[in-house]
């Protein structure tokens, strides 16, 4: 994998380390990154995007603790061998989490009752 595969938006309200983890999740879930693929070094990512290396380390560390990545001795980070492109349902659902949270937030702001929102959502999903 190359550092250019990541896109960083410093001005976004989402911290950069979360942006990286999120993109890794998607890349792995979508199959662009396969098990055992090596990740660019912290230095390379930091240099390419001109971001603080500690941010990159933090992102890699978080992805490692989630089981997405594993540390290979002497080689750096790689996509964990256990990871499959077809993930469990829970993992795929987790990817939807930010959007769901945003939905909840908007619903509260509009002072909509939960059952009305759920009914509408259910209808959309059935279509």
């Amino acid at each position: 994998m190359d550092a250019s595969l990541l896109t960083i938006q410093p001005a976004s309200p989402e911290p950069i380390y979360r942006q990286i983890v999120e993109q890794l999740r998607r890349l792995i879930a979508g199959g662009q990154l396969g098990a055992g693929d090596l990740l660019p070094s912290v230095r390379d990512v930091a240099a390419f995007h001109a971001i603080n290396p500690m941010t990159v380390s933090r992102a890699y560390g978080m992805a490692e603790s989630e089981g997405l990545l594993e540390r290979l001795r002497g080689k750096g980070m790689a996509v964990a061998a256990t990871v499959r492109p077809t993930q469990t349902q829970t993992q795929r659902l987790a990817l939807l989490e930010p959007q769901l949270q945003a939905l909840v937030r908007h619903a509260r702001e509009l002072e909509l009752p939960a059952d009305a929102v759920l009914r509408r959502l259910g209808r959309l999903l059935e279509d």
Binding site: A11, I16, A47, N52
Partner: peptide, 27 residues
């Protein structure tokens, strides 16, 4: 700055009012 901080572990203090610079490189 990012590479220096990474490799040499130096401490950097910089003032700015261009916030996007901060968001990239500041810890």
């Amino acid at each position: 700055i990012a590479l220096r901080a990474c490799e040499a572990g130096i401490t950097v203090v910089f003032s700015t009012h261009i916030v996007s610079d901060l968001e990239r490189v500041a810890s």
